[in-house]
Design a protein around this nucleic acid. Structure first.
Length: 394
DNA sequence: TCTGGGGTCCTAGGACCC
DNA sequence: TCTGGGGTCCTAGGACCC
């Protein structure tokens, strides 16, 4: 089985069987259709509603078991192990693994070590070495060395392809050599980011656990189109729909935006000349009202739209975020907080949260949405919609 | 024919201030 | 011949993460 990115573009997840058949990560599906048909590989669109719900379930189990939790991404969390005796850490890992499996059916792997970076190394091997049964504690210096000796540079958290290349050009071919490298040299050539990585690999914590998520700096929504978009009218609909989505995320976190940015682009893979442009404007006072944000977004779109082109992608970014209730009052302009606009938005959001059928949306988003992304192989939202519950057959 | 989306952080360089 | 020192803010670009 393989799972595709948005717009059914690239392969972004593969089952063990698909990996064994030589299907590589992040390859466009159209380059793999032969293999897919030959081996009857199941192809699925991604289903973010389902993933989001399962993620929340897993994270809430972890939050009950661990003293502290930092939810790092949809499928990863760092847990603080304060107060758990050293000789019980492996047991704690096994307990996490079995609780999550029992309550969600999802297999997880657990890496335990003195720093986040080393815990990620431990996890890397917990996942891959069957004899570890999904749990690996890295506390012994010799054990740590033996694993650092075996993990490829680019698999270390914070070292990507470019940095690994740079290290190799400079005769650092292995993580142990990086650990032994000179601090000044690392800082000079690769900034403090890599210096932190090196220290973390030596067991000195430089990246603290963040139990309270830091304030968001920007909220964006962008999509590739499911088919050619040439008309300003279609682009306006798409930009309005993306703005509406981003504004929902904004209000969900109680924020207002002080800046809005719109961008559009043609297909970079096509032979035709590539056009991409962006425009932004400050919003004073900051707002979280969809109609206002949409009107601003469409004004910006008109500034960058060039007729006669085939557009492939558009997006909007909301920035300079502040708490909606922290916005400075204005003598001449009504602010969003406690306005009729806000009451309207809250009513719309509440309706859309509590109803299962249909959705209240702005007419500017359009009805047909011909530009909407492809999702030809979508599974059901099994856990969040009454009408899409899994069916058990006798 | 068909190639994802949403983020963060750091640095260098420019423009400006006194 | 010789042209200061100490700051801030902003942006673009690059690298990384999932």
């Amino acid at each position: 089985m393989v799972v595709l990115s948005n717009n059914d573009g690239c392969i972004v997840a593969r089952s063990a069987e698909a990996k064994a058949l030589g299907i590589s990560m992040a390859i466009p599906i159209f380059k793999n259709w032969d293999l897919v048909r030959r081996h009857r590989i199941k192809v699925l669109s991604s289903n973010y509603v389902l993933y989001g719900d399962m993620s929340r379930r897993v994270m809430s189990i972890l939050a009950q078991l661990a003293p502290r939790i930092e939810v790092y991404s949809i499928d990863e969390a760092f847990l603080g192990c304060e107060g758990i005796p050293q000789d019980q850490l492996s047991d704690f890992g096994r307990q996490i693994r079995s609780a999550v499996a029992r309550m969600t059916g999802i297999p997880v792997s657990v890496g335990i070590a003195a720093t986040k970076t080393l815990a990620k190394v431990a996890n890397h091997f917990a996942k891959r070495e069957p004899e570890r049964k999904g749990v690996l504690l890295l506390d012994d210096p010799e054990l740590i060395r033996s694993y650092l000796d075996r993990i490829p540079l680019e698999k270390v958290w914070g070292i990507g392809r470019r940095k690994a290349e740079f290290f190799r050009r400079n005769h650092i071919d292995n993580v142990l050599q990086l650990v032994a490298a000179d601090d000044r040299w690392i800082k000079q050539h690769l900034t403090v980011m890599s210096l932190r990585t090196a220290w973390e690999l030596r067991g000195i914590s430089c990246i603290p656990l963040e139990a309270i998520p830091p304030k968001r700096k920007g909220i964006g929504t962008s999509r590739s189109f499911g088919r050619d978009v040439r008309d300003l009218a279609d682009l306006k609909e798409a930009v309005a729909a993306y703005t509406s989505r981003a504004a929902e995320k904004l209000r969900c976190q109680g924020l207002a935006a002080g800046h809005i940015h719109v961008f559009i682009a043609t297909d970079a893979f096509k032979d035709e000349p590539f056009y991409a442009n962006a425009a932004g404007i400050g919003l004073d006072p900051p707002s979280a009202a969809t109609p206002f944000l949409c009107s601003q977004a469409i004004r910006l779109l008109k500034r960058i739209f060039r007729p006669g082109l085939v557009y492939k992608r558009a997006g909007i970014m909301l920035m300079e975020l502040t708490g909606a209730d922290k916005v400075q009052s204005d003598l001449f302009v009504p602010v969003y907080h406690q306005s009729r606009q806000q009451r309207l938005m809250e009513t719309v959001d509440r309706y859309n949260r509590t109803t299962n059928t249909g959705k209240l949306f702005w007419a500017a988003e359009g009805m047909g949405k011909p530009w909407y992304m492809r999702q030809a192989y979508k599974t059901k939202r099994y856990t969040t919609r009454w009408d899409e519950l899994p069916v058990a057959r006798a």
